[in-house]
Design a protein around this nucleic acid. Structure first.
Length: 1020
RNA sequence: GCUCAAGUGGCGGAAUUGGUAGACGCGUCGGAUUCAAAAUCCGAUUCUUCGGAGUGCGGGUUCGAUUCCCGCCUUGAGUACCA
């Protein structure tokens, strides 16, 4: 009995060990970061999770485990590490749940966060929870609101190339007007003098300033999603439908807050060169920013328009401005195309063409964005009857409209060069417009020639004989001389719409006086979300906040008050005004949270973080998260960081120095196969008889799906049983003349009912609370007593019943096994399938590791000196693991640990001198077992900050080498030779070896290649 | 269409200043232990007509190519009438 107890005590009880050390870390605040330290700083950040109701599945922690290993490694390496975690807790699912159930989103969010915290804690992350942030907590979103106000109070000065306080702009307006202001602003700005400015009413001044502010209110065409009742940003739309839910999206004009991110387009592009991100991610951002260099060209519309008075024409000749990336092809222009929505269309269209043009515009307007996108092949358009004048040749150019020109890009008009652009070419062919060729020696009879290199310009007056580069430069120069164009750079990046018609988001710190937005003073923040009785839009189509009763701003008492007191209601100005009804989008809170972590929670009151904290932590050294945020979160965060830097609120220009995208973990779905029908094919006559068994409840093992014998037996049995008519009986009686194949339908089953060998646990399936009844009367056709399921790799999702929860894994194998296994699956950045069966490998490793230290009779570790082999194993492991961590190749270090433990076990190593440093190597990966063994070795405190072992190359020096001997590059055998032999000595030794002589069979080699320390290759 | 990434055993994957292809683990097979099972331990496991062949396919460079070059194919991700 005693022996049994002793034995139990000596075994690896991961549940007890893990609970013990998680408690220890929490009680001792082992991972609490300090803002002052002698050590160098290192900031490791995960993309914080949205706490969904479903909880975590094994795919979610992958990135957290990787970052945790790195954070723990850096602590061993002597860094002061900040490794925080929090929640991106505003968002759609909680709101939709609220709409369905009436449950307040704050309540569900709180519940979900508790689940997440429990799940995260059980995995043993070294997070500093004392710095937690939640985007939905008022203490946090107070500062999101504050940043919004700072954006409102800023404009972008192109001269200084940064954002400046709006007061500097007002000062310029008051002293010299706006003629010399070079700002990023709306494009419909009128020039005014200082005198005019000073005479404007306050409202007029506010209207003008709004056109300069970095966040501004404007009527814009937005992506309206009726099903969700809100607008969406461009990055929230995938393939023309909403990313969430897949609902249709329409274009609609609405007054919305926008962020002038376009001001930062060039800096966002340039900044990519200064950060360590993957090429593919940088490429995504470059594409999204979409810089194109070219020229803007102005075409004068020829006066054949009777709609216009003479006076109008003299005063302002109608002009069409276009953007082109190919000014070198200007002599190839044979027509112009305007977007159907272009504002000039109605003015220039001739009476004869009016009917056709109007019909076309109507037809285009009816087509949704998605139709237009789906159908890019059909060429359509209409002639306006008007002509423009070519700036150089002065020839008349017909003006068309066509929906292949987008109103939203460039100027919504193009100069069409059919010989150089395929779309222009197709359009010209379709409408029989001339296609002049301006390329030397190029055949354009079949298609346009779009390449710009290796071709010379022809038929182009002063551009003849030039290449693309030279001709472009010259064309721009001549256009400038004419005053009809200039070099120009265009960006695809649009300003970002910042209003959402939702409840569960940050309220704007904004109220309206006379329709003009006013910011609430910092001292009165946060403006907290009001209570509403329902989370839906109002009956009049206003956002959910329109339902709030207490949602007006009292400018006298500086607080939110009941709507009944509104000035408008009273009919006189009592200083109480309506508050903004929209809320901020999901990306608001996530665009600056990494700065919040830098400050200790208690000190986040006066500023969002103290200057000392911001200067100490600077920016995130390592950021790990999914690649789905490439053009959303990651771009907006860079934008806000650059803005905050311009205004000197932070000290860095880029938020994330190094970024790694972890790959998705895919699920391995399991299928059972229900027999639906049999196909009987006569071998002699080729006759095919199909027998339907739709109502059958027979499930056939995947291992016998193609087995003829099984199919025949099943067929006979079913025909006899079901009293089928004679045709089938004929088949039965001549069964050997037929091939029988079975058609099945594959049905997902829960993966937890399938074991490592793909065998289904039928009893458990039948007693499943949800689906058991479906299988109560089912017959399972087995092979050798087992039912084998089919397998397929799919995205892990509830509907595919392939979700694996970390809870069950931690329970059965422990957190250390989960951590090791997630890393062992494959390279961090790669997508890879999850297969729970494989975890026994790493779990077995941990047991072996344990046994290396703790035997049946207690601790195995002694003070005996390490052998040469022991030291060799240790140091080879140190070297490899260190390299692996630095390269984020975590999967290979798990293999390295396995090899080390296998070797040390075989060596019967008990030496503390080797086994103690090994624990520090394992500690980042499997921290619980490392802590426990470290303490069993008699150490006090945590292993977390123990120095990472130092590699000593002298232990790896070899005295001999097992040379691979190749013949014509193909390795045939090896010969053990001393390391210190010269080239000639090696060759002599190899050539006189009997295996070499046998392999050569008397031939004389042409050549012998000897690479000392590597290989010998014999040619001939 | 364009951009990027990737194709290696039954499976996840390892190996690149070019130098023993398949480390490590899963699965499978065989054995030990056990009344039996679980657990544990040991061995085998790319294919092969036993000559060899082999890292998606076809070429090339090289003494030698999974690794470098050219051309293709396939898969995945992103993006799309962007002038």
């Amino acid at each position: 009995m005693n022996r049994l107890i002793k034995r139990y005590k000596m075994q690896y009880h991961f549940n007890e060990i893990e609970a013990k050390w998680q408690k220890y870390w929490a009680e001792n605040q082992t991972f609490k970061a300090s803002n002052t330290s002698e050590k160098p700083k290192y900031y490791v950040l995960d993309m914080f999770p949205y706490p969904s109701g479903a909880g975590l599945h094994v795919g979610h922690p992958l990135g957290y485990i990787a970052s945790d290993i790195y954070a723990r490694y850096k602590r061993h390496k002597g860094f002061n590490v900040l490794h925080p975690q929090g929640y991106d807790s505003f968002g759609l699912p909680a709101e939709q749940y609220a709409i369905q159930t009436g449950q307040h989103p704050a309540v569900t969010t709180e519940t979900n966060i508790k689940t997440y915290r429990r799940q995260l804690d059980q995995i043993g992350f070294s997070f500093d929870w004392s710095r937690e942030v939640r985007t939905s907590s008022p203490e946090y979103y107070k500062w999101t609101q504050w940043i919004f106000i700072q954006l409102f109070e800023s404009w972008y000065n192109n001269e200084s190339n940064k954002a400046e306080e709006i007061s500097s702009l007002i000062a310029v307006f008051a002293s010299e007007g706006n003629a010399n202001v070079n700002a990023v602003c709306d494009d419909n700005i009128e020039v005014f003098t200082a005198e005019a400015w000073n005479n404007f009413s306050q409202k007029e001044q506010e209207e003008i300033l709004l056109k300069y502010r970095l966040t501004y209110l404007a009527e814009t065409e937005v992506n309206w999603c009726p099903a969700l009742g809100t607008v969406l940003a461009n990055d929230e739309i995938v393939n023309g439908v909403s990313e969430r839910g897949g609902h249709p999206v329409l274009r609609k004009k609405m007054t919305q807050w926008s962020m002038r991110i376009s001001a930062y387009a060039e800096r966002l592009l340039q900044g990519l060169d200064t950060i360590d991100w993957t090429d593919s991610l940088k490429e995504s951002q470059r594409n999204w920013i979409g810089k194109s260099v070219g020229a803007s060209v102005t075409f004068n519309v020829l006066d054949n328009n009777e709609n216009k008075s003479h006076a109008e024409l003299v005063e302002a000749p109608q002009q069409i401005e276009v953007f082109t990336t190919r000014p070198d092809t200007i002599f190839g222009v044979s027509f112009m195309t305007l977007a159907p929505e272009h504002e000039l269309v109605s003015q220039i269209t001739t009476p004869e063409q009016k009917a056709e043009v109007d019909a076309y515009i109507l037809a285009t307007a009816k087509r949704s964005e998605r139709d237009r996108m789906a159908d890019v092949k059909t060429i359509s358009g209409a002639f306006t009857g008007a002509y423009a004048e070519h700036p150089f040749s002065k020839e008349p150019i017909p003006i068309w409209i066509g929906d292949y020109v987008l109103a939203g890009y460039g100027t919504g008009a193009v100069m069409s060069v059919p010989c150089g652009d395929q779309r222009d070419y197709d359009f010209a062919k379709h409408f029989n417009i001339a296609i002049p060729n301006i390329f030397e020696g190029v055949d354009i009879s079949e298609e346009a020639y779009a390449a710009k290199d290796n071709v010379k310009i022809a038929n182009s007056d002063f551009l003849n004989g030039m290449n693309y580069k030279k001709a472009s430069k010259r064309a721009i120069y001549d256009l400038e001389q004419l005053g009809q164009g200039e070099g120009k750079t265009n960006y695809r990046l649009r300003d970002a719409v910042f209003s959402r018609q939702r409840y569960w988001g940050e309220p704007f710190p904004v109220y309206y006086v006379n329709g003009m937005p006013q910011m609430i003073d910092k001292a009165h923040l946060p403006i907290t979300l009001p209570e509403v009785e329902k989370y839906l839009p109002t009956e009049t189509g206003e956002p959910p906040l329109g339902r709030a009763d207490v949602w007006a701003w009292d400018t006298v008492n500086n607080k939110v008050v009941s709507n009944v007191n509104l000035s408008a209601v009273e009919g006189e100005d009592n200083g109480i005004y309506p508050l903004e009804l929209n809320t901020m989008p999901g990306w608001a809170g996530s665009s600056w949270y990494f700065f919040s972590y830098m400050e200790e929670k208690a000190k986040r009151g006066e500023d969002f973080a103290s200057e000392d904290a911001l200067n100490y932590w600077e920016n995130v050294d390592l950021y790990i998260g999914g690649s789905e945020h490439a053009t959303g979160h990651l771009l907006y965060s860079r934008f806000w960081t650059k803005f905050l830097k311009d205004r000197a609120f932070v000290g860095v220009d880029e938020p994330f120095k190094k970024l790694i995208n972890q790959g998705m973990i895919l699920g391995t779905s399991a299928f059972i196969y229900r027999v639906s029908d049999f196909i009987c094919t006569s071998k002699t006559e080729g006759q095919i008889i199909k027998v339907n068994f739709l109502n059958s409840l027979i499930y056939i093992s995947s291992s016998v799906l193609d087995n003829q014998e099984v199919a025949k037996n099943l067929f006979i049995k079913e025909v006899n049983k079901s009293n089928r008519d004679d045709d089938f009986k004929t088949v039965v009686s001549n069964i050997n003349d037929f091939d029988i194949s079975i058609n099945v339908s594959a049905i997902h089953v829960k993966v937890q009912y399938v074991n490592a060998s793909d065998e289904l646990d039928i009893e458990s399936l039948k007693s499943d609370a949800e689906f058991g009844a479906d299988y109560k009367d089912a017959e399972f056709l087995l092979e050798n007593g087992v039912y084998k399921v089919g397998r397929e790799v799919e995205k892990m999702s509830k509907s595919k019943y392939n979700v694996v929860s970390p809870d069950a894994i931690c329970e059965q194998y422990g957190a250390d096994s989960l951590r090791l296994y997630e890393m062992f699956l494959g390279p961090l950045e790669q997508a890879k399938p999850w297969n729970t069966a494989g975890i026994t490998g790493v779990h077995g490793f941990l047991k072996k590791l344990w046994k290396l230290y703790v035997g049946e009779n207690g601790l195995n570790v002694t003070d005996v000196a390490a052998t040469k082999d022991n030291l060799k194993t240790l140091h080879k492991t140190i070297k490899k693991v260190e390299e692996d961590i630095e390269n984020f190749s975590f999967n290979t270090s798990v293999s390295t640990f396995m090899i080390a433990v296998n070797e040390l076990t075989a060596q019967k190593c008990t030496s503390k001198e080797v086994l103690e440093p090994l624990l520090a190597l394992v500690s980042p990966y499997a921290p619980h077992i490392a802590e426990e063994l470290y303490s069993q070795l008699g150490n006090e405190g945590s292993i977390a900050t123990v120095a990472f072992p130092k590699f000593d190359a002298s232990h790896l020096v070899e005295s001999s080498k097992n040379y691979p001997i190749s013949f014509n590059g193909k390795m045939r055998f090896t010969i053990e030779l001393p390391m210190d032999l010269s080239k000639d000595e090696i060759e002599k030794a190899v050539m006189s070896n009997e295996k070499t002589i046998a392999q050569l069979e008397g031939r004389t080699p042409k050549k012998v290649i000897v690479v000392p320390g590597k290989i010998v290759n014999i040619v001939g």
